[in-house]
């Protein structure tokens, strides 16, 4: 009776004291890491934020007004970038299918095969797209082809990972039913797995296509063709009004493509 009374009077805590202490310690450790990083990174910022604000005016003055006269001249390169992204995304989407299935734990029950594909995909993802582009430009020379190769490898890593995770989260019951009705591996996959992942698959491919458009701009700067190559040239010649036009065109294109693919994804899911 007495214990019950004292508990209600003191108002019981929501969490035990031990949890509270742990959370408090974690909070201060994280706070410490942030403070440390902030101090360290500020050390070699010469003028601090004041200088950046001052420079802003000079930069804007250099870039504006953009030179829209070159629009027709850069149109071809922009299209080239989009085409690179389309081709790379398509090839990656096809190659992803076997890799994603083999690296999904619920489908590939043969462990060694699963570990081999998983490791291969992990390795693929550790190589930055820029490094891939530098390697392929070195191998095949400046142009669109090395760009497509770099984008394909880069997006394959992302796509296969995302799709294998989608596969791992499907409802296994229909697969069991297909197996129980005497279907072989391909029939089981085609009849009960494909319908379950098809919408997510399409949505993820569109998402990777968006990423590829943006990535192909960056890749162009190391010689992998497309609009990035032109942008890099203009920046090197200090032709900032031209560069500004290119940046605006890229910005508009990315926005339009994102808008279209968002609409498509909404319709799918």
């Amino acid at each position: 009776m007495t214990t019950k009374n004292s508990l209600t009077q003191k108002s019981m805590p929501l969490y035990p004291a031990k949890t509270k202490i742990q959370v408090t310690i974690i909070f201060f450790v994280v706070l410490g890491i942030y403070t440390f990083s902030m101090i360290k990174t500020q050390e070699d910022m010469v003028g601090g934020f004041g200088g950046a604000l001052g420079n802003m005016y000079t930069v804007i003055e250099k870039f504006f007004p953009p030179n829209f006269a070159i629009l027709s001249a850069i149109w071809d390169s922009m299209m080239q970038t989009i085409q690179m992204a389309i081709i790379a995304t398509t090839i990656a989407a096809i190659l992803t299918v076997p890799l994603a299935v083999l690296s999904a734990q619920n489908i590939t029950t043969f462990k060694p095969l699963y570990y081999v594909t998983r490791t291969f995909l992990n390795l693929l993802r550790t190589i930055p797209d820029l490094v891939l582009a530098v390697i392929f430009v070195g191998l095949f020379g400046v142009g669109v082809f090395p760009g497509i190769l770099a984008l394909t490898v880069f997006s394959l890593g992302i796509l296969a990972k995302l799709i294998s995770e989608t596969i791992e989260s499907v409802d296994m019951n229909p697969l069991e039913a297909m197996r129980a009705s005497g279907g072989n591996v391909f029939q089981v996959i085609w009849y009960s797995l494909v319908p379950q992942v098809a919408p997510q698959f399409t949505s993820l491919v569109l998402y990777v296509f968006e990423i590829n458009i943006r990535a192909s701009v960056v890749l162009g700067m190391v010689g992998a063709g497309g609009i990035g190559l032109v942008l890099n040239q203009q920046l090197k010649f200090y032709n900032y009004p031209n560069a500004m036009t290119i940046i605006i065109v890229i910005f508009a294109t990315v926005l339009i493509i994102e808008f279209i693919s968002n609409k498509l994804r909404e319709a799918l899911l």
Binding site: E176, S181, G182, P195
Partner: peptide, 16 residues
């Protein structure tokens, strides 16, 4: 398995 058919508690149809 072709000779022995099975019915499940959760129907196990492909929903889509």
């Amino acid at each position: 398995r072709t000779k022995v058919g099975m019915i499940f508690q959760n129907y196990n149809l492909v929903k889509r």
